[in-house]
């Protein structure tokens, strides 16, 4: 009996797991609820409206998203007869879990006691994990067996080809500048935040994250006026909520990665010993920075329409990809000059 409890405890306190549960699941849920509220409020301000209000006028409608979540949770999940049942149910769940998986491998502190994994190649592992989840959106579209879902899934597949290379190139430019794949070393090397040294790579990464998470000029797979809700057309209830939340969770994971690489990670604070100083405070700083980054992401909704699919691909390959390459070149130049 004691052995089983020990086993469970050892699983829970296995560093990647608790980081995934604590920061990945709990943290991202809180941040995503806040960000969706912020996005709705900010968009409403630009559009001369109020946004969520009536649920709690004093909190400016902050619990609206909690209410939405409860509604999704209690709604009937309808599985169409023509859908591929197992995949239809599994795809959104797997996509959501996988979209926060990169968080399990990134360091949130410089204290080695709280690293989830050995950090030597962590940037590569994290980037590799970001590329896993999109396939399940395509699966969701395919399993729905609906024309709009399939078109949406295919669009998702096209968009992946556009952003993946850019995201990897622009984020890896940091490791080219510092000559290491170790995220902790990258963070510690930033006496000046890397965004100031290499704004081109940051811009490329910013655009690629917008593309990866259906941010607004690139909100193509789910574009309502052509394909209803893209891959999620047939979903309802909690599964639909998961699908919608997955994009934001993915954006959160990307934001944390971008904060570590471009915005100095836990920068003004130097992590010390003990769980408070060594893990909680630096991780909170990282999460707060990621939340601010996500707020900037969410402003694009009120300013831009959406690109056409081919224009998005063209822009990605003709404009953003050279930008990422240029950023990489700049990083190499900085490494040669020894700026960082």
């Amino acid at each position: 009996m004691a052995g089983i409890i020990d086993l469970i405890l050892s699983i829970i306190f296995y560093p990647p797991i608790y980081q995934l549960v604590l920061v990945g699941l709990t943290g991202s849920l809180v941040v995503v609820i806040f960000i969706i509220w912020f996005e709705r409020k900010a968009t409403a301000r630009v559009q001369r409206r109020l946004g969520p209000y009536h649920i709690a006028p004093r909190l400016a409608g902050l619990p609206q998203l909690v209410a939405d979540l409860i509604r999704y949770a209690f709604q009937e999940v309808i599985i169409p007869r023509t859908a591929d049942r197992e995949l239809f149910v599994l795809a959104p769940i797997v996509a959501t879990v996988l979209s926060i998986l990169p968080i399990a491998v990134v360091p949130l502190t410089s204290n080695p006691a709280y690293w989830p994994i050995p950090m030597d190649y962590s940037i590569l592992v994290a980037l590799a994990l970001t590329t896993v989840s999109p396939i399940f959106l395509i699966v969701a579209g395919w399993a729905s067996n609906n024309k709009f879902s399939i078109i949406g899934g295919v669009r998702e597949a096209f968009v992946i080809t556009a952003y993946e290379m850019i995201a990897i190139m622009s984020i890896l430019s940091a490791s080219a500048a510092v000559l290491t794949f170790n995220l902790v070393e990258i963070v510690e090397a930033q006496r000046i935040w890397y965004i100031l040294l290499n704004p081109i790579a940051f811009l490329a990464a910013f655009l690629s994250v917008l593309m990866a998470t259906s941010g607004f000029p690139f909100e193509i797979p789910e574009s309502e006026n052509e394909v209803v809700a893209g891959p999620f057309t047939e979903y309802s209830g909690l599964l639909y909520g998961l699908n919608m939340g997955a994009a934001y969770m993915k954006r959160f994971a990307f934001s944390i990665l971008m904060v570590l690489v471009f915005l100095g990670g836990w920068s003004p604070y130097t992590p010390g010993e003990g769980i408070l100083s060594g893990y909680l405070i630096p991780s909170l700083i990282v999460v707060a920075k990621a939340a601010i980054l996500m707020m900037i992401f969410s402003l694009t909704r009120s300013i831009y329409g959406r690109f056409r699919l081919d224009q998005a691909l063209e822009g990605a390959w003709r404009l953003v990809f050279p930008m990422a390459v240029l950023g990489f070149g700049l990083a190499l130049l900085e490494a040669y000059l020894g700026v960082m």
Partner: peptide, 16 residues
């Protein structure tokens, strides 16, 4: 037109 091409601000502004 605005909401058709995804520009929700145009939609809200012109309706306001």
């Amino acid at each position: 037109f605005g909401v058709f091409i995804g520009h929700s601000t145009m939609y809200m502004w012109s309706f306001a």
